[in-house]
C-alpha cells in the first residue's frame, strides 16, 4: 500500500518483563540446570509486506532486522506467520515441534523430530496450525495446549506458549501491528531439560 512507509519502519518492539527469572535448580541427577523463564509482549507487524519481528531466546530480546541473515535470532513473526532460523529462512540450526500438551508439564525437549523452513513456501509452522481465526471479531486466538518446542539457532532448547494475540490500538480501517504475549523457558546449559 505505502511502500515508502514500510521501508522506513523499524520494528518497534515492546518488551514487558512481567516475570523474569534466571533460576537454578537441581534435577534428579543433582546436575544444576540454568533456565531463563519469562513472559514477553512482542510487537509484530500486521502487513504482509513489512519486516518480521525476530526474537532470540538466549538474549531474551528482539533481534534487529539488519541481522535477519545471521544466526542471532531463533524465530520471527509477521502477522500470523512464523519463521524458524533454518534452511530457507536463515543460516541457523533452529527447528521446532508444535506439541500438544500443558506448558508446565513438558519437562524436556525431544532429541529429534524438529521441523525446518524447508522452502519459503513450506515453513516449519504451517499457517493456522497454532491459532483459530474468528471471522466476526477478526481475532487470532491461540489454540490452547499448543506448545512450541524450539531447538534454537545455536542448538539449545526452549519451550514457548502463545497466551494471547491482541491488536495494537489503531484508528482507521487497517491495523498496523499485533501484540503477541508469550511465555517461554530457555535452557541455557544446552541440555534438553526445562
Amino acid at each position: 500500500m505505502k511502500k515508502k512507509f514500510i521501508s522506513m519502519v523499524m520494528i518497534t518492539s515492546v518488551f514487558c518483563g512481567i516475570l523474569f527469572f534466571v533460576s537454578c535448580k537441581k534435577d534428579q541427577n543433582g546436575k544444576t540446570i540454568t533456565v531463563i523463564s519469562d513472559t514477553v509482549k512482542l510487537n509484530v507487524n500486521f502487513s504482509a509486506n513489512s519486516p518480521y519481528a525476530f526474537f532470540s531466546f538466549k538474549n531474551n530480546g528482539i533481534v534487529n532486522n539488519v541481522d535477519s541473515a545471521t544466526g542471532k535470532w531463533d524465530f520471527g513473526i509477521r502477522l500470523a506467520t512464523f519463521l524458524v532460523n533454518s534452511n530457507a529462512s536463515g543460516p541457523g540450526n533452529a527447528g521446532v515441534i508444535l506439541q500438544n500438551g500443558i506448558f508446565d508439564q513438558i519437562i524436556s525437549a525431544p532429541a529429534t523430530g524438529y521441523a525446518y523452513d524447508t522452502t519459503s513456501s513450506r515453513l516449519a509452522i504451517s499457517d493456522g496450525s497454532w491459532y483459530n481465526y474468528d471471522m466476526s471479531t477478526h481475532s487470532f486466538i491461540p489454540k490452547p495446549g499448543k506448545v512450541f518446542i524450539f531447538r534454537t539457532a545455536d542448538n539449545h532448547y526452549a519451550k514457548m506458549e502463545i497466551m494471547k494475540v491482541e491488536y495494537e490500538p489503531f484508528t482507521g480501517p487497517v491495523p498496523r501491528a499485533l501484540d503477541y504475549t508469550f511465555r517461554f523457558v530457555y535452557q541455557a546449559n544446552g541440555s534438553t531439560d526445562f
Binding site: I102, P144, G145, K146, E161
Partner: peptide
C-alpha cells in the same frame, strides 16, 4: 486427552 481449554482471565491451560 488431546483437547485443551484456556481459563478466562488467568489464561491457564488445562486438559
Amino acid at each position: 486427552g488431546e483437547v485443551y481449554a484456556r481459563e478466562a482471565g488467568t489464561n491457564r491451560v488445562y486438559k
